[in-house]
Design a protein around this nucleic acid. Structure first.
Length: 368
DNA sequence: GATACGTGGTC
DNA sequence: TGACCAAGTAT
């Protein structure tokens, strides 16, 4: 950092110095009870903290809750998770999104189980699959009492508001990291790393919220420059996002007389990596003609006894594109003609154990 | 640094 | 209705 930038930064920090003790006092009264969170005076279980942190990446607490409970019941320890086949883990993760998390979760569990437990330093944690700069610091501070501040969306928002930062994200990220780190210079924060980290999360989730922050009851209202501007909700400033392109495809829900469905596994990497899907065309920028698509069905649709029908269309929004799928129902006597195709027959009662992502459940719902 | 990577809820 | 948002990571 050059001298001028350093000077400007020092000036900001000198002007905005919230006290850790006021936040910790607020947290002692207002802390949320969460299943992965230790009660006051107890120490957190690293496995529970890790599992919750991975699930909570870009995902709300409400969404995570039932998945977390199910996972903990199914995999009580990291060793149980490590011993499970990846497909079972993907099935348990299905619907939660960002499926590389589930693949990395399993890989991480294997390593941790083999070494006999989680490491307790930021550096060693961050070397594990699926654990980046944020999660390593979250686990280290919450589970092991290491005095570091994990910078997630909450901490970014709180910090950007404290300093009324006008530099837009994501460019401002490096500067926000620096400013957030200074929160930890307060000895009161360093004395209680676990509580301080979780207090920041709760402040971000309950008070310093994205849309309508409740500044009147905020323990850090006083030094907050964002509050001083009268419109704290405009921080952090964000760069405009790019428009999502549309993609199109046709998908076949092929059902046998006995009610079994023909499924296949997606490639291990990339979009919905390792998840289960119905066979179909590639997803392309332009709509594909139905006639052309039908020729790509895994089974010929002509012979007597096989019927097909367009069930309808589904529209599904992914992170970086919008997918339009035409769902075609195909009725077939049995799966013998598909024997050499890429895929497998799934009996009705085995469907719940499949790793079907939400987009595929949407197709299934339409087909039935 | 930019891009790929899901989903469901809210206003 | 659509745009934004949620405890980010890997490449």
């Amino acid at each position: 950092m050059n001298t001028l930038a350093g000077y400007v930064l020092a000036l900001h920090i000198a002007r905005v110095t919230p006290s850790a003790s006021s936040l910790l006092d607020w947290y002692a009264r207002q802390r949320r009870i969460l299943p992965w969170r230790a009660l006051p005076g107890q120490s957190a279980d690293p496995y529970a903290v890790w599992l919750s942190e991975i699930m909570l990446q870009q995902t709300t607490v409400v969404t995570v809750m039932p998945y977390y409970e199910r996972f903990l019941k199914r995999y009580p320890t990291v060793h149980d998770l490590a011993a499970s086949p990846l497909q079972d883990v993907l099935s348990a993760w299905a619907g939660l999104g960002y499926y590389s998390r589930a693949r990395n979760l399993h890989a991480c569990a294997t390593i941790v189980s083999a070494r006999g437990g989680f490491p307790d330093t930021v550096e060693q944690l961050q070397a594990l699959p699926g654990i980046g700069a944020y999660t390593a610091r979250a686990i280290a501070s919450i589970a092991f009492g290491v005095p570091v501040v994990p910078v997630d969306g909450n901490v970014e928002r709180i910090t950007a508001r404290l300093h009324a930062m006008t530099e837009p994200l994501p460019q401002a990220r490096r500067q926000l990291d620096k400013l957030a780190e200074h929160l930890n210079h307060d000895p009161d924060a360093r004395r209680a790393p676990s509580d301080f980290t979780q207090a920041l999360f709760d402040l971000g989730a309950g008070i310093c919220t994205p849309r309508r922050p409740s500044c009147l009851v905020c323990p850090w209202r006083n030094p907050c420059k964002g509050h001083e501007t009268g419109d704290p909700a405009r921080f952090p400033v964000k760069a405009p996002r790019k428009a999502k392109p549309e993609r199109h495809g046709v998908i076949f829900v092929i059902k046998s007389r006995e009610g079994a469905l023909w499924l296949r596994h997606r490639p291990e990497k990339g979009l919905l990596g390792g998840m289960t899907e119905f066979p179909g065309t590639a997803w392309l920028d332009e709509p594909i003609s139905l006639v052309h698509a039908l020729s790509q069905a895994p089974v010929a649709l002509e012979p007597e006894g096989r019927t097909w029908k367009v069930a309808g269309q589904i529209r599904h929004v992914f992170t970086h594109f919008v997918l339009n799928l035409t769902v075609v129902n195909v009725a077939i006597a049995d799966f013998s003609p598909l024997h050499n195709q890429d895929g497998f027959a799934c009996p009705p009662d085995a469907l719940k154990d499949q790793a079907l992502p939400s987009v595929m459940n949407k197709c299934l719902a339409l087909a039935q």
